[in-house]
Design a protein around this nucleic acid. Structure first.
Lengths: 210, 210
DNA sequence: GTTGTTATGGTACGAGTGTATCATCAAGGG
DNA sequence: CCCTTGATGATACACTCGTACCATAACAAC
Protein backbone atom coordinates (compact mmCIF):
# COMPACT_ATOMS: atom_id res chain seq x y z
CA UNK A 1 0.00 0.00 0.00
CA UNK A 2 3.00 2.32 -0.33
CA UNK A 3 1.79 5.68 -1.65
CA UNK A 4 4.25 6.22 -4.42
CA UNK A 5 4.29 9.44 -6.42
CA UNK A 6 2.49 8.92 -9.70
CA UNK A 7 4.43 9.39 -12.88
CA UNK A 8 1.96 12.01 -14.09
CA UNK A 9 0.15 14.88 -12.40
CA UNK A 10 -3.49 13.92 -12.35
CA UNK A 11 -4.83 17.37 -11.58
CA UNK A 12 -2.78 18.90 -14.36
CA UNK A 13 -4.07 16.31 -16.81
CA UNK A 14 -7.65 16.87 -15.74
CA UNK A 15 -7.25 20.59 -16.23
CA UNK A 16 -5.78 20.06 -19.66
CA UNK A 17 -8.64 17.85 -20.78
CA UNK A 18 -11.32 20.03 -19.23
CA UNK A 19 -9.76 22.95 -21.03
CA UNK A 20 -10.04 21.07 -24.30
CA UNK A 21 -13.73 20.56 -23.53
CA UNK A 22 -14.19 24.27 -23.07
CA UNK A 23 -12.33 25.10 -26.26
CA UNK A 24 -14.38 22.60 -28.24
CA UNK A 25 -17.63 23.83 -26.74
CA UNK A 26 -16.75 27.39 -27.67
CA UNK A 27 -16.18 26.38 -31.27
CA UNK A 28 -18.61 23.66 -32.16
CA UNK A 29 -21.03 23.92 -29.26
CA UNK A 30 -21.40 22.12 -25.97
CA UNK A 31 -23.77 19.52 -27.38
CA UNK A 32 -21.17 18.54 -29.98
CA UNK A 33 -18.36 18.28 -27.45
CA UNK A 34 -18.28 14.52 -27.20
CA UNK A 35 -15.66 12.35 -25.62
CA UNK A 36 -13.85 11.73 -28.89
CA UNK A 37 -13.94 15.38 -29.87
CA UNK A 38 -12.46 16.42 -26.57
CA UNK A 39 -9.83 13.71 -26.75
CA UNK A 40 -8.72 14.86 -30.19
CA UNK A 41 -8.66 18.50 -29.11
CA UNK A 42 -6.59 17.62 -26.07
CA UNK A 43 -4.26 15.45 -28.13
CA UNK A 44 -4.91 12.33 -26.10
CA UNK A 45 -6.75 9.08 -26.71
CA UNK A 46 -10.40 8.51 -25.96
CA UNK A 47 -9.44 6.05 -23.29
CA UNK A 48 -7.52 8.72 -21.42
CA UNK A 49 -10.55 10.97 -21.18
CA UNK A 50 -12.43 8.01 -19.81
CA UNK A 51 -9.63 7.30 -17.38
CA UNK A 52 -9.45 10.75 -15.84
CA UNK A 53 -13.18 11.38 -15.97
CA UNK A 54 -15.08 8.16 -15.62
CA UNK A 55 -18.21 9.46 -17.25
CA UNK A 56 -19.23 12.32 -19.45
CA UNK A 57 -21.31 13.92 -16.75
CA UNK A 58 -18.27 14.11 -14.51
CA UNK A 59 -16.29 15.73 -17.31
CA UNK A 60 -19.01 18.31 -17.88
CA UNK A 61 -19.23 19.15 -14.21
CA UNK A 62 -15.47 19.44 -13.81
CA UNK A 63 -15.15 21.70 -16.84
CA UNK A 64 -17.93 23.91 -15.54
CA UNK A 65 -16.27 24.30 -12.16
CA UNK A 66 -12.97 25.03 -13.81
CA UNK A 67 -14.60 27.66 -15.98
CA UNK A 68 -16.09 29.34 -12.92
CA UNK A 69 -12.78 29.19 -11.08
CA UNK A 70 -10.90 30.75 -13.99
CA UNK A 71 -13.42 33.55 -14.18
CA UNK A 72 -13.15 34.19 -10.48
CA UNK A 73 -9.36 34.27 -10.76
CA UNK A 74 -9.48 36.80 -13.56
CA UNK A 75 -11.77 39.08 -11.58
CA UNK A 76 -9.48 38.93 -8.58
CA UNK A 77 -6.45 39.56 -10.77
CA UNK A 78 -8.16 42.58 -12.26
CA UNK A 79 -8.89 43.97 -8.82
CA UNK A 80 -5.34 43.26 -7.74
CA UNK A 81 -4.02 45.11 -10.77
CA UNK A 82 -6.15 48.10 -9.86
CA UNK A 83 -4.89 48.10 -6.31
CA UNK A 84 -1.29 48.24 -7.48
CA UNK A 85 -1.73 51.10 -9.88
CA UNK A 86 -3.54 53.47 -7.57
CA UNK A 87 -6.09 53.75 -4.83
CA UNK A 88 -7.15 50.87 -2.53
CA UNK A 89 -9.96 49.44 -4.66
CA UNK A 90 -13.04 51.55 -4.19
CA UNK A 91 -16.46 49.87 -4.39
CA UNK A 92 -16.91 51.35 -7.82
CA UNK A 93 -13.64 49.85 -9.02
CA UNK A 94 -14.51 46.42 -7.69
CA UNK A 95 -17.91 46.45 -9.35
CA UNK A 96 -16.45 47.74 -12.58
CA UNK A 97 -13.93 44.91 -12.50
CA UNK A 98 -16.63 42.27 -12.20
CA UNK A 99 -18.81 43.78 -14.90
CA UNK A 100 -15.95 44.34 -17.32
CA UNK A 101 -14.58 40.84 -16.86
CA UNK A 102 -18.01 39.42 -17.69
CA UNK A 103 -17.99 41.29 -20.98
CA UNK A 104 -16.89 39.28 -24.05
CA UNK A 105 -14.35 41.81 -25.26
CA UNK A 106 -11.44 39.49 -26.07
CA UNK A 107 -11.17 35.84 -27.03
CA UNK A 108 -10.76 34.57 -23.50
CA UNK A 109 -13.81 36.38 -22.15
CA UNK A 110 -15.75 35.57 -25.27
CA UNK A 111 -15.11 31.89 -24.74
CA UNK A 112 -16.23 32.22 -21.17
CA UNK A 113 -19.50 33.93 -22.05
CA UNK A 114 -20.16 31.48 -24.83
CA UNK A 115 -19.62 28.33 -22.84
CA UNK A 116 -21.24 29.76 -19.76
CA UNK A 117 -24.39 30.45 -21.75
CA UNK A 118 -24.33 26.94 -23.18
CA UNK A 119 -24.01 25.43 -19.72
CA UNK A 120 -26.82 27.57 -18.44
CA UNK A 121 -29.16 26.52 -21.22
CA UNK A 122 -28.22 22.88 -20.78
CA UNK A 123 -28.71 22.89 -17.04
CA UNK A 124 -32.19 24.34 -17.42
CA UNK A 125 -33.52 20.94 -18.44
CA UNK A 126 -30.79 18.44 -17.64
CA UNK A 127 -31.33 17.45 -14.02
CA UNK A 128 -27.95 15.76 -13.77
CA UNK A 129 -26.15 18.98 -14.58
CA UNK A 130 -27.77 20.71 -11.62
CA UNK A 131 -27.09 24.39 -11.79
CA UNK A 132 -25.73 24.45 -8.28
CA UNK A 133 -22.28 25.91 -9.06
CA UNK A 134 -23.65 28.43 -11.51
CA UNK A 135 -26.49 29.75 -9.39
CA UNK A 136 -24.59 29.58 -6.14
CA UNK A 137 -21.70 31.52 -7.63
CA UNK A 138 -24.03 34.11 -9.08
CA UNK A 139 -25.79 34.58 -5.78
CA UNK A 140 -22.50 35.11 -4.00
CA UNK A 141 -21.47 37.71 -6.55
CA UNK A 142 -24.82 39.44 -6.26
CA UNK A 143 -24.54 39.71 -2.50
CA UNK A 144 -20.97 40.95 -2.78
CA UNK A 145 -21.97 43.67 -5.24
CA UNK A 146 -24.86 44.72 -3.01
CA UNK A 147 -22.46 44.96 -0.07
CA UNK A 148 -20.11 47.14 -2.11
CA UNK A 149 -23.01 49.40 -3.01
CA UNK A 150 -24.00 49.74 0.63
CA UNK A 151 -20.42 50.60 1.51
CA UNK A 152 -20.41 53.26 -1.19
CA UNK A 153 -23.61 54.71 0.21
CA UNK A 154 -22.11 54.80 3.69
CA UNK A 155 -19.07 56.61 2.30
CA UNK A 156 -21.31 59.12 0.56
CA UNK A 157 -20.22 58.09 -2.94
CA UNK A 158 -23.66 56.87 -3.97
CA UNK A 159 -27.03 58.60 -3.53
CA UNK A 160 -28.96 57.25 -0.58
CA UNK A 161 -32.22 57.13 -2.45
CA UNK A 162 -31.01 54.22 -4.61
CA UNK A 163 -31.78 50.66 -3.54
CA UNK A 164 -28.53 48.66 -3.25
CA UNK A 165 -30.15 45.25 -3.66
CA UNK A 166 -32.24 46.13 -6.68
CA UNK A 167 -29.32 47.97 -8.25
CA UNK A 168 -27.05 44.97 -7.69
CA UNK A 169 -29.52 42.65 -9.38
CA UNK A 170 -29.94 45.17 -12.19
CA UNK A 171 -26.22 45.44 -12.83
CA UNK A 172 -25.62 41.72 -12.92
CA UNK A 173 -28.62 40.74 -15.00
CA UNK A 174 -27.75 43.57 -17.36
CA UNK A 175 -24.20 42.28 -17.52
CA UNK A 176 -25.40 38.81 -18.42
CA UNK A 177 -27.83 40.14 -20.98
CA UNK A 178 -25.20 42.38 -22.52
CA UNK A 179 -22.81 39.47 -22.77
CA UNK A 180 -25.19 37.38 -24.85
CA UNK A 181 -26.13 40.45 -26.84
CA UNK A 182 -22.52 40.88 -27.84
CA UNK A 183 -21.83 37.27 -28.76
CA UNK A 184 -24.85 37.08 -31.01
CA UNK A 185 -23.51 40.15 -32.75
CA UNK A 186 -26.42 42.35 -31.83
CA UNK A 187 -24.21 44.83 -29.99
CA UNK A 188 -20.52 45.59 -30.06
CA UNK A 189 -18.34 45.24 -27.01
CA UNK A 190 -17.92 49.00 -27.06
CA UNK A 191 -21.65 49.60 -26.91
CA UNK A 192 -21.97 47.19 -24.03
CA UNK A 193 -19.18 48.92 -22.17
CA UNK A 194 -20.94 52.23 -22.80
CA UNK A 195 -24.12 50.93 -21.20
CA UNK A 196 -22.19 49.75 -18.17
CA UNK A 197 -20.36 53.05 -17.84
CA UNK A 198 -23.66 54.88 -18.17
CA UNK A 199 -25.07 53.10 -15.14
CA UNK A 200 -21.87 53.37 -13.16
CA UNK A 201 -21.98 57.13 -13.67
CA UNK A 202 -25.58 57.11 -12.51
CA UNK A 203 -24.67 55.17 -9.36
CA UNK A 204 -21.44 57.04 -8.63
CA UNK A 205 -21.99 60.64 -9.77
CA UNK A 206 -18.74 61.87 -8.25
CA UNK A 207 -16.45 59.63 -10.26
CA UNK A 208 -14.77 60.59 -13.51
CA UNK A 209 -16.17 58.85 -16.61
CA UNK A 210 -13.17 56.53 -16.98
CA UNK B 1 -53.10 20.56 -62.58
CA UNK B 2 -56.39 21.45 -60.84
CA UNK B 3 -55.59 22.99 -57.45
CA UNK B 4 -57.95 21.07 -55.23
CA UNK B 5 -58.29 21.81 -51.51
CA UNK B 6 -56.32 19.33 -49.50
CA UNK B 7 -58.13 17.06 -47.11
CA UNK B 8 -56.08 18.36 -44.18
CA UNK B 9 -54.91 21.83 -43.24
CA UNK B 10 -51.17 21.82 -43.67
CA UNK B 11 -50.49 24.98 -41.73
CA UNK B 12 -52.57 23.76 -38.83
CA UNK B 13 -50.67 20.48 -38.80
CA UNK B 14 -47.34 22.24 -38.92
CA UNK B 15 -48.34 24.44 -36.02
CA UNK B 16 -49.44 21.43 -34.04
CA UNK B 17 -46.16 19.61 -34.57
CA UNK B 18 -44.02 22.68 -33.99
CA UNK B 19 -45.92 23.21 -30.78
CA UNK B 20 -45.06 19.69 -29.71
CA UNK B 21 -41.42 20.52 -30.37
CA UNK B 22 -41.63 23.54 -28.12
CA UNK B 23 -43.37 21.58 -25.37
CA UNK B 24 -40.78 18.82 -25.53
CA UNK B 25 -37.91 21.29 -25.55
CA UNK B 26 -39.32 22.99 -22.48
CA UNK B 27 -39.44 19.71 -20.61
CA UNK B 28 -36.51 17.61 -21.68
CA UNK B 29 -34.40 20.19 -23.43
CA UNK B 30 -33.96 21.25 -27.01
CA UNK B 31 -31.09 18.86 -27.62
CA UNK B 32 -33.33 15.95 -26.60
CA UNK B 33 -36.19 17.05 -28.83
CA UNK B 34 -35.61 14.59 -31.64
CA UNK B 35 -37.93 13.66 -34.44
CA UNK B 36 -39.33 10.65 -32.62
CA UNK B 37 -39.82 12.55 -29.38
CA UNK B 38 -41.71 15.30 -31.14
CA UNK B 39 -43.82 12.80 -33.06
CA UNK B 40 -44.83 11.04 -29.87
CA UNK B 41 -45.61 14.32 -28.12
CA UNK B 42 -47.73 15.45 -31.06
CA UNK B 43 -49.47 12.09 -31.23
CA UNK B 44 -48.45 11.44 -34.81
CA UNK B 45 -46.06 9.07 -36.50
CA UNK B 46 -42.42 9.80 -37.17
CA UNK B 47 -43.17 9.72 -40.86
CA UNK B 48 -45.63 12.61 -40.51
CA UNK B 49 -43.07 14.85 -38.92
CA UNK B 50 -40.80 14.05 -41.83
CA UNK B 51 -43.61 14.74 -44.23
CA UNK B 52 -44.50 18.19 -42.97
CA UNK B 53 -40.92 19.21 -42.20
CA UNK B 54 -38.54 17.52 -44.55
CA UNK B 55 -35.56 17.85 -42.29
CA UNK B 56 -34.89 18.52 -38.65
CA UNK B 57 -33.32 21.87 -39.35
CA UNK B 58 -36.52 23.02 -41.02
CA UNK B 59 -38.51 21.87 -38.02
CA UNK B 60 -36.25 23.75 -35.66
CA UNK B 61 -36.47 26.92 -37.68
CA UNK B 62 -40.24 26.74 -38.03
CA UNK B 63 -40.71 26.17 -34.31
CA UNK B 64 -38.45 29.12 -33.55
CA UNK B 65 -40.38 31.43 -35.81
CA UNK B 66 -43.64 30.22 -34.35
CA UNK B 67 -42.32 30.86 -30.85
CA UNK B 68 -41.37 34.40 -31.79
CA UNK B 69 -44.74 35.00 -33.45
CA UNK B 70 -46.64 33.77 -30.41
CA UNK B 71 -44.63 36.04 -28.17
CA UNK B 72 -45.28 38.99 -30.42
CA UNK B 73 -48.99 38.19 -30.42
CA UNK B 74 -49.11 38.07 -26.65
CA UNK B 75 -47.37 41.42 -26.36
CA UNK B 76 -49.82 42.99 -28.79
CA UNK B 77 -52.76 41.39 -26.98
CA UNK B 78 -51.48 42.81 -23.71
CA UNK B 79 -51.24 46.26 -25.19
CA UNK B 80 -54.71 45.89 -26.69
CA UNK B 81 -56.09 44.89 -23.31
CA UNK B 82 -54.56 48.00 -21.77
CA UNK B 83 -56.06 50.20 -24.43
CA UNK B 84 -59.53 48.88 -23.73
CA UNK B 85 -59.42 49.34 -20.00
CA UNK B 86 -58.21 52.91 -19.94
CA UNK B 87 -55.94 55.42 -21.53
CA UNK B 88 -54.60 55.15 -25.10
CA UNK B 89 -51.42 53.16 -24.38
CA UNK B 90 -48.78 55.52 -23.06
CA UNK B 91 -45.13 54.80 -23.84
CA UNK B 92 -44.68 53.55 -20.31
CA UNK B 93 -47.54 51.10 -20.71
CA UNK B 94 -46.19 49.75 -23.96
CA UNK B 95 -42.75 49.23 -22.50
CA UNK B 96 -44.19 47.66 -19.38
CA UNK B 97 -46.17 45.27 -21.56
CA UNK B 98 -43.07 44.09 -23.40
CA UNK B 99 -41.01 43.67 -20.26
CA UNK B 100 -43.77 41.92 -18.34
CA UNK B 101 -44.53 39.53 -21.16
CA UNK B 102 -40.87 38.56 -21.29
CA UNK B 103 -40.97 37.61 -17.63
CA UNK B 104 -41.49 33.89 -16.89
CA UNK B 105 -44.34 34.39 -14.45
CA UNK B 106 -46.73 31.70 -15.66
CA UNK B 107 -46.30 28.41 -17.51
CA UNK B 108 -46.74 29.89 -20.94
CA UNK B 109 -44.16 32.62 -20.47
CA UNK B 110 -41.89 30.23 -18.62
CA UNK B 111 -41.92 27.89 -21.60
CA UNK B 112 -41.13 30.79 -23.87
CA UNK B 113 -38.16 31.96 -21.83
CA UNK B 114 -36.88 28.42 -21.47
CA UNK B 115 -37.01 27.48 -25.12
CA UNK B 116 -35.88 30.90 -26.26
CA UNK B 117 -32.76 30.55 -24.12
CA UNK B 118 -32.13 27.09 -25.52
CA UNK B 119 -32.41 28.36 -29.07
CA UNK B 120 -30.12 31.24 -28.33
CA UNK B 121 -27.46 28.97 -26.88
CA UNK B 122 -27.76 26.56 -29.78
CA UNK B 123 -27.54 29.22 -32.43
CA UNK B 124 -24.34 30.58 -30.91
CA UNK B 125 -22.38 27.72 -32.41
CA UNK B 126 -24.69 26.05 -34.92
CA UNK B 127 -24.24 27.94 -38.19
CA UNK B 128 -27.30 26.33 -39.76
CA UNK B 129 -29.56 27.74 -37.08
CA UNK B 130 -28.43 31.25 -37.88
CA UNK B 131 -29.73 33.63 -35.26
CA UNK B 132 -31.31 35.84 -37.85
CA UNK B 133 -34.90 35.75 -36.58
CA UNK B 134 -33.84 36.06 -32.96
CA UNK B 135 -31.44 38.92 -33.36
CA UNK B 136 -33.47 40.73 -35.95
CA UNK B 137 -36.55 40.56 -33.76
CA UNK B 138 -34.61 41.79 -30.77
CA UNK B 139 -33.20 44.69 -32.71
CA UNK B 140 -36.66 45.72 -33.85
CA UNK B 141 -37.94 45.61 -30.29
CA UNK B 142 -34.96 47.60 -29.07
CA UNK B 143 -35.54 50.35 -31.62
CA UNK B 144 -39.25 50.41 -30.81
CA UNK B 145 -38.57 50.80 -27.11
CA UNK B 146 -36.07 53.57 -27.79
CA UNK B 147 -38.67 55.34 -29.92
CA UNK B 148 -41.21 55.08 -27.12
CA UNK B 149 -38.70 56.56 -24.71
CA UNK B 150 -38.04 59.46 -27.03
CA UNK B 151 -41.78 60.06 -27.34
CA UNK B 152 -42.06 60.07 -23.56
CA UNK B 153 -39.26 62.61 -23.34
CA UNK B 154 -40.99 64.78 -25.91
CA UNK B 155 -44.19 64.58 -23.86
CA UNK B 156 -42.30 65.54 -20.72
CA UNK B 157 -42.95 62.24 -18.97
CA UNK B 158 -39.28 61.25 -18.82
CA UNK B 159 -36.33 63.36 -17.72
CA UNK B 160 -34.38 64.77 -20.65
CA UNK B 161 -31.01 63.97 -19.13
CA UNK B 162 -31.57 60.23 -19.68
CA UNK B 163 -30.26 58.59 -22.84
CA UNK B 164 -33.12 56.82 -24.66
CA UNK B 165 -30.91 54.41 -26.60
CA UNK B 166 -28.81 53.33 -23.64
CA UNK B 167 -31.89 53.03 -21.46
CA UNK B 168 -33.63 50.91 -24.09
CA UNK B 169 -30.68 48.54 -24.27
CA UNK B 170 -30.52 48.45 -20.49
CA UNK B 171 -34.17 47.56 -20.09
CA UNK B 172 -34.10 44.77 -22.64
CA UNK B 173 -30.85 43.16 -21.59
CA UNK B 174 -32.04 43.39 -18.01
CA UNK B 175 -35.28 41.77 -19.03
CA UNK B 176 -33.44 38.90 -20.69
CA UNK B 177 -31.10 38.50 -17.74
CA UNK B 178 -33.97 38.56 -15.27
CA UNK B 179 -35.79 35.92 -17.26
CA UNK B 180 -32.95 33.43 -17.05
CA UNK B 181 -32.40 34.39 -13.43
CA UNK B 182 -35.98 33.38 -12.66
CA UNK B 183 -35.98 30.08 -14.53
CA UNK B 184 -32.80 28.91 -12.84
CA UNK B 185 -34.52 29.65 -9.54
CA UNK B 186 -32.11 32.34 -8.50
CA UNK B 187 -34.83 34.97 -8.25
CA UNK B 188 -38.59 34.81 -7.95
CA UNK B 189 -40.88 36.30 -10.54
CA UNK B 190 -41.96 38.86 -7.95
CA UNK B 191 -38.39 40.01 -7.39
CA UNK B 192 -37.86 40.35 -11.11
CA UNK B 193 -41.04 42.38 -11.45
CA UNK B 194 -39.84 44.57 -8.59
CA UNK B 195 -36.60 45.31 -10.42
CA UNK B 196 -38.51 46.23 -13.56
CA UNK B 197 -40.90 48.47 -11.66
CA UNK B 198 -37.95 50.10 -9.93
CA UNK B 199 -36.47 51.18 -13.24
CA UNK B 200 -39.80 52.17 -14.71
CA UNK B 201 -40.30 54.49 -11.73
CA UNK B 202 -36.86 55.90 -12.35
CA UNK B 203 -37.61 56.54 -16.02
CA UNK B 204 -41.17 57.81 -15.50
CA UNK B 205 -41.17 59.65 -12.17
CA UNK B 206 -44.69 61.02 -12.63
CA UNK B 207 -46.42 57.67 -12.90
CA UNK B 208 -48.01 55.78 -10.02
CA UNK B 209 -46.10 52.65 -8.88
CA UNK B 210 -48.57 50.21 -10.47
C1' DG C 1 -63.51 2.57 -63.23
C1' DT C 2 -59.01 3.48 -63.84
C1' DT C 3 -55.37 6.52 -62.75
C1' DG C 4 -52.68 9.75 -60.28
C1' DT C 5 -51.72 12.66 -56.48
C1' DT C 6 -52.03 13.49 -51.47
C1' DA C 7 -51.42 11.72 -47.02
C1' DT C 8 -49.96 8.26 -43.89
C1' DG C 9 -47.73 3.99 -41.82
C1' DG C 10 -43.82 0.81 -41.10
C1' DT C 11 -39.21 -0.09 -41.20
C1' DA C 12 -34.40 -0.29 -42.47
C1' DC C 13 -29.79 1.90 -42.85
C1' DG C 14 -25.61 4.31 -41.76
C1' DA C 15 -23.41 7.33 -38.74
C1' DG C 16 -22.69 8.89 -34.32
C1' DT C 17 -22.73 8.49 -29.24
C1' DG C 18 -21.11 6.94 -24.33
C1' DT C 19 -19.39 3.12 -22.15
C1' DA C 20 -17.16 -1.41 -21.31
C1' DT C 21 -13.63 -4.86 -22.18
C1' DC C 22 -9.28 -6.80 -23.19
C1' DA C 23 -4.49 -6.04 -23.71
C1' DT C 24 -0.05 -3.84 -22.80
C1' DC C 25 3.70 -0.91 -21.24
C1' DA C 26 6.22 1.25 -17.20
C1' DA C 27 7.83 1.20 -12.72
C1' DG C 28 8.43 0.50 -7.84
C1' DG C 29 8.24 -3.14 -3.66
C1' DG C 30 9.28 -7.63 -1.95
C1' DC D 1 13.70 -11.09 -10.42
C1' DC D 2 8.96 -11.31 -10.08
C1' DC D 3 4.58 -9.14 -9.50
C1' DT D 4 1.30 -5.86 -8.17
C1' DT D 5 -0.44 -1.47 -9.40
C1' DG D 6 -0.76 2.80 -12.25
C1' DA D 7 -1.30 4.53 -16.94
C1' DT D 8 -2.38 4.02 -21.68
C1' DG D 9 -3.94 1.88 -26.21
C1' DA D 10 -7.24 -0.40 -29.38
C1' DT D 11 -11.54 -1.98 -30.14
C1' DA D 12 -16.19 -3.75 -29.50
C1' DC D 13 -21.08 -3.13 -27.96
C1' DA D 14 -25.47 -1.31 -27.42
C1' DC D 15 -28.16 2.43 -28.43
C1' DT D 16 -30.05 6.61 -30.51
C1' DC D 17 -30.36 9.76 -34.12
C1' DG D 18 -31.78 11.70 -38.73
C1' DT D 19 -32.96 10.21 -43.05
C1' DA D 20 -34.49 7.21 -46.89
C1' DC D 21 -37.25 3.74 -48.82
C1' DC D 22 -41.37 0.97 -49.73
C1' DA D 23 -46.23 0.19 -49.21
C1' DT D 24 -50.91 1.74 -49.25
C1' DA D 25 -55.28 3.95 -47.94
C1' DA D 26 -58.30 7.99 -49.47
C1' DC D 27 -59.99 10.91 -52.66
C1' DA D 28 -60.01 13.96 -57.22
C1' DA D 29 -59.97 13.87 -62.28
C1' DC D 30 -60.97 12.02 -66.52
Amino acid sequence: MGRVPRRVDHEERRRHIADALVRTAATRGLHAAGMREVATEAGVSLRLVQYYFGTKEELLLAAMQQLAAQFSDRVLARIQRMKETGSPASPRDVIAAVLTEALPADDERRTFTLVYTAYLALSLTDPALAISPLVRNSSVVRDAVAAQLRAAQAAGDMPGRLDPDLEAISLLTMSAGLGTSVIVGQSSAGQAQAVIDYHLRRLFPAYPPA
